[in-house]
Design a protein around this nucleic acid. Sequence first.
DNA 1: ACTGGCTGCCC
DNA 2: ATTCTGC
DNA 3: GCAGAATGGGCAGCCAGT
Length: 976
Amino acid sequence: MSKNQSIKSFFTSKTNTAPKKEDESVTKKEDIKTTSPERKPIKEDLVSKTPKAENNKRQRKSSSELKNLSASAKKSKKNESDSEILIEEEKENIKSKKLLDSSSDSIKNEKSESSDFDSPIKGNKSLNKSADSKRRKLVIESSSEEEKAKKSDSEDEKPKKKKETKKTKPAKKSPPLKNSKVLKSESEDEIMQLSEEEEEKKVSPKPKLIEKTTTKKSPKKKDFFKKPEKKVKEEKTEEIQVVEEKKAEETKVIEVDKEVKKEIKEETKETEKKTEAKTSLFFNLKKASGASVSSSDYNPAKENYHPIKDAFWAKNDQVPYKALAQTLFCMEKTTKRLELLSIVTNYFRSVLALSPKDLIPSIYMLTNKVAPDYEGLELGIGDTVLFKSLAEATGSTLQKLKLEFQSKGDIGLVAEANRCNQKLLFTPKKLTVNAVFSKLRDIASISGNSSQSKKSDLIKSLLVSCDAIEARYLMRSLAGKLRNGLGEQSILVSLAHACTITVQSPKSDEDLIIDRFEKMRSNDQKIDEMKKILEKSNQILKKAYYQCPNYSVVINAILEHGLDNLDQYCKLTPGVPLKPMLAYPTKGIHEVLKRFENVEFSCEYKYDGERAQIHILEDGSINIYSRNSENNTGKYPDIIEFLQELLHLKKGKNNESEKEDVEIENRVTSAILDAEVVAYDIEKKMIQPFQVLSTRKRKDAASEEIKVKVCIFGFDLIYLNKESLIDLPFRKRRDLMYKYFPLVEGKMMFAVKMDSNDVEAIQEFLDNSIRDGCEGLMIKTLDDEAHYEISKRSHNWLKLKKDYLEGVGDTLDLVVIGGYLGTGKRTGLYGGYLLACYDPENEEYQTICKLGTGLKDNDLQVQFESLNKIKIDRPKSYYRINDTLEQPDHWFEPEQVWEIKCADFSLSPVHTAALGLADRGKGISLRFPRFLRLRDDKKPEDATSAEQVTEMYKNQQQMLNLNEKDKKEEEDEEDY
DNA sequence: ACTGGCTGCCC
DNA sequence: ATTCTGC
DNA sequence: GCAGAATGGGCAGCCAGT
């Protein structure tokens, strides 16, 4: 029965879904793309042919582009001279900039200098996931290609096998089961009841012991690999053995790379010294008197660092990029925050003392930005482009680079190792921080036809001039992940410290006080005083920056007027976004009460929409900014028109007379309103889900064409009629908001609130909020610590969502079927996993989401070991995988079941869970999935079923509300 | 003119 | 967005 | 408790290739 039935059911499932799909225009593609069992022939095609074709294609391309390399190298000279001009322009620009009156003016100038288009190319703060996985896919497929030929025969048997495995699993699983229990007990606080035998096991594989048994050099992983490898070989079939051997090879590679990675710093430093030895003479000539450091010895981590003597460039020189690279390099050696801060502080002090004009580019480089957030200037470079450029620049193949990336986990290290070694006829000019920054801006400014290749050319031209260390950090900058342990917050602290320690002498403009606290450092009492001064500077700077998040403005103000007077020059201004107040997640009402003990607070609905900071300017124009200070003005023309009407604002000169015409008691002439914009169905008076909101146009939306109507839910007022309200307590700010902003049903509303600290009342309010289609509650103190001051605490509010509560919220038991190799601190482990639910109807596993959070470091270790034992070289035929989903690096036997929590369910264009059940062409996926624990008591067939997933999807509050409304009003179904 | 892939930005 | 972790 | 760094789904915008 097993075999036939399963095949039959596969078949019927297919024939069922196929016709359905056909009448849905959407799904033509899906039909082909989805891997489904009875389509095996096609699947074979997909798996074995496509990658080949793709590889060939890429190889061809990269070789042809290789030829271009020499051409681009020639070009680079021209590029450089071009950028020189730009740099000069920029310098002029900065020089001539009058910061005071208009942050925006100076910004506009800058922008028009470097770019003549205003369509924002978005930034590059995160590694591109799809790019990542693409790369992985390529690697895996190519590496296993040979195997595939052999395997394809056995593929036919797999569906049959599946039934067998199903039956035999309990027996088969028992050894791993024990293991996983053991592992679990390590990773979980809650310890399961274990038999004595298990108790023993529990003790033995503790990481510490493993460490002891390993040699000095080889990391723990060495053991992890070898043990499972042997075990598995003994008990598995021949077929699997092949897989294992391959696995072993791979693991060896990783293993080696691990070691390599550890040594790489030292190595590179040595090579650095050699190469720099030649050039150091050159620098010595140029050096200011007293300085005698070569560039690769530059060490801002040094004790008693002297910003001039310990630097290696001369006064008024442009800061060499090498200095920045060395700074970052020093930072990599420690994780201690104070040390990191001091390193960057020292670097800044040198810049201040020698080349103050380079402070701005330095800050941008260290915070990995190219412009203020609200300018919308973004690199538009992802991993894909970066790897392509790197391949072209170095002559390596994409494949090789990507494979290397898997083991190194960092594109900077890959670039460093593959750096173009061929010596050019003439030594390229040394890079300066300003030059690199300018080029980054150039890259960001390019758009339009063949912009990709132009960007690529720029990157290559930069790479040519890089030494090893520089290449490392340049690539990280381009990838948008400096990963240096200091984010924007801490860079600001460093800057504040630097500007406080190294200051201009009050006596003359020329003199510089190198260390204002020199005499205080040895005295304990004085040190406290020093710390106070530093902290005060810190506050001044942070307060200035969060009200005016523009480094050019802030730094120019510091250089011209000093840190202490910053508040006069960096004031809150409508038209310039400020950093918004954020909220901390809270696990329950009790935690809320504990945190806000004896303090009055208010609870508000937390709406599931988009944060909007609405700026109403004196001239009647309105700007809207996102949570991350992006300019969203072009996204909400409807809101702007509505508000201008509502508040009797008129654009243009006539506003004076107009305003007098209408008599309103509390007129808004300027304001900054903090609000949530939510998709809203006015007819049904219903809040719509986030997924609806997100389908709105983002740029140049025309108000007539807008389909998704929107309602503003105001919750805070930060600025009103020329006055900043940030120092008022929340209670007063909110009252002003109520007073000045009229309520318009379905257009302009206020967050539903309740001021009470009664547990039951809050509980009820929380339930209500969920019922009304909200995410939960925001909790804010009314009077105490209730200023809108991000500089003190950016997360001054609390948020309480249903799915934060323990034992509440949707939980699923899902099967791990694939893994994605991690990057950064997860290098050498899995950084993410592919999860599936089980569909007994079709006897297949359907992907439902990827997972990458909620995992403890130890979980990652343990999982890497246990999953390696069940690694397979290709997905099972009964895995239903959409081809547009990025393929995992490794596939696994369906064995481990994990408990996953999520906030919501969504219809997914890529995941196949419950495909056809909730929607004809779309599967279901999870919003905010996170790992809870291993369910070693469950077999994969006991995982949450497709049907259950559908149920959960339909039981979402939003769906319930929708149905209820539909029933009541007997209207047509509304679907999105 | 259409599509797929990449990127950035919302959450 | 969520979560974990070192300081 | 903070800041930083791992990672999620899913949308529109843009570009390259067909």
